[in-house]
C-alpha cells in the first residue's frame, strides 16, 4: 500500500538532483510495484463468479470476506458515531446550562467582549422541518429566526442573512417582521433596541421606523431572507438579463467581468457574508448561493442538531481565530 522507504528515498534523491538521476525506464520500474493490476483483471473481481474452479472459489470467498468486513466495519463505525453524537449532545447540554444567556443582551455582550473581532455579516442556514405541516413548523422556524436575530443584535452584528431552502419565510414577511420586533422589544428595553429592517430579493424592505430620530449612534440590524431561488437561480436570472442585453447589442460578452457580476449579485441578493453557521450535524450547503460563499468562514458544529446559542457563540469564537490571507 504505502511506498517502501527505499523507493521513497530513490524518488527524493531524484527530485533533489533535478530529475537527472533516473531515466524514464528506471522511473517506470520504481512505480511498477505500486500500480494496481491491469484493468482487464481488476475489473473482474467480485462480480465475476461464474468461472468455477479453484480460482473462482477463492475469489468468491474473498468477496464474501469483503462483504462481511464491510458490514463489520460499518457496524463498528456506526457505534462509534452514535457514541460521538451522544457525547456531544450531553456536552452541549451541560455547556448550555452553564452558559445560558437568560434572554438578556448583557450576557451575550459579555460573552463576545473577549473576541478580537466580530463578523460584519453573519449568515445562518435554517431548515424547515419535514413531515409536520402547517402552522407549527412555520412557527418554530420563525421562532428560530427571532432567536438568532436577537443574538446578533446583542452581539452587535449589523447584518444577518437567513437561508431557508424553500423560501417559505418570504411569503410571510410581515408576520416575520412583527415577530422579530416583538422579540427585540422583549430583549431590549424600549429605546435601546436596534433599528430593524427586513428585506429579500425583489421586495421592498420593511423598516421599523426609528423612534428617536436624534439618536445617531443607534444600532441597526438588517435581516435578509434568502432561499434556494437566490442561489444558482439568481445567477441564471442575471445571465438571462445579460443575454438579452447582448442580443439588443447594448453590451458585448467581453464587457462581462467578474466585477460586474459581483456587483450585481451583491446588490440584488446580498453581499458576501463573513461567517456562515449551519445548525445541521454536517456541512451541506443545501443550495446556498454559490457566488457569495467564496471566503465565508463556514462553521458547523459536528453532530449538532437544532439551533442553539452555544453553536452560535462557538462559531463567533472560531471566526475570531481564523486568519485570512487570500491566496498568499
Amino acid at each position: 500500500m504505502s511506498f517502501s522507504a527505499r523507493d521513497t528515498k530513490a524518488y527524493r534523491d531524484d527530485e533533489q538532483s533535478g530529475h537527472r538521476k533516473l531515466g524514464v525506464q528506471q522511473r517506470e520500474e520504481l512505480v511498477k510495484n505500486y500500480l494496481p493490476a491491469a484493468p482487464n483483471r481488476a475489473r473482474s473481481n467480485s462480480r465475476n463468479r461464474k468461472d468455477t474452479g479453484h480460482f473462482g472459489l477463492r475469489k468468491f470467498l474473498k468477496s464474501q470476506l469483503y462483504v462481511f468486513l464491510y458490514f463489520f466495519v460499518h457496524a463498528v463505525f456506526s457505534i462509534y458515531l452514535r457514541i460521538r453524537v451522544a457525547y456531544r449532545v450531553v456536552a452541549n447540554q451541560i455547556l448550555s446550562i452553564l452558559k445560558y444567556h437568560h434572554n438578556t443582551p448583557d450576557y451575550i455582550r459579555r460573552d463576545v467582549s473577549t473576541l478580537s473581532r466580530l463578523p460584519r455579516h453573519v449568515s445562518v442556514i435554517l431548515t424547515l422541518e419535514e413531515g409536520g405541516r402547517g402552522v407549527d413548523v412555520l412557527e418554530k422556524l420563525i421562532n428560530e429566526v427571532t432567536e438568532v436575530a436577537a443574538w446578533c443584535a446583542s452581539a452587535g452584528i449589523p447584518r444577518l442573512s437567513i437561508y431557508e431552502k424553500t423560501g417559505i419565510l418570504k411569503k410571510y414577511m410581515p408576520q416575520t417582521h412583527r415577530a422579530l420586533s416583538r422579540k427585540l422589544k422583549t430583549w431590549f428595553a424600549r429605546h435601546q433596541g436596534p433599528v430593524l429592517s427586513l428585506s429579500t430579493r425583489g421586495e421592498t424592505a420593511i423598516q421599523t421606523p426609528s423612534r428617536d430620530h436624534f439618536a445617531q449612534d443607534q444600532q441597526t440590524l438588517e435581516v435578509i431572507l434568502i432561499s434556494e431561488d437566490d442561489g444558482r437561480e439568481a445567477m441564471v436570472d442575471l445571465t438571462r438579463v445579460l443575454a438579452e442585453m447582448a442580443q439588443k447589442g447594448r453590451i458585448s460578452a467581453s464587457d462581462i467581468t467578474l466585477d460586474v457580476i459581483d456587483n450585481e449579485l451583491a446588490e440584488a441578493v446580498m453581499p458576501e457574508p463573513n461567517l456562515l453557521i449551519s445548525f445541521e450535524p454536517y456541512v451541506d450547503l443545501q443550495g446556498y448561493p454559490p457566488w457569495q460563499i467564496r471566503l465565508t468562514e463556514i462553521y458547523c458544529s459536528p453532530d449538532n442538531q437544532g439551533v442553539g446559542y452555544q453553536v452560535f457563540l462557538r462559531a463567533l469564537r472560531k471566526y475570531a481565530q481564523a486568519t485570512f490571507k487570500l491566496g498568499k
Partner: peptide, 21 residues
Amino acid sequence: GVMRLSDFMLWQCHENTHIFF
C-alpha cells in the same frame, strides 16, 4: 483546519456535497 471554500468549486458544491474540513 481552515473552514472556508476559498473560491474553489463554489458552483459545484452547493448541494448534496459533503464538505469535510
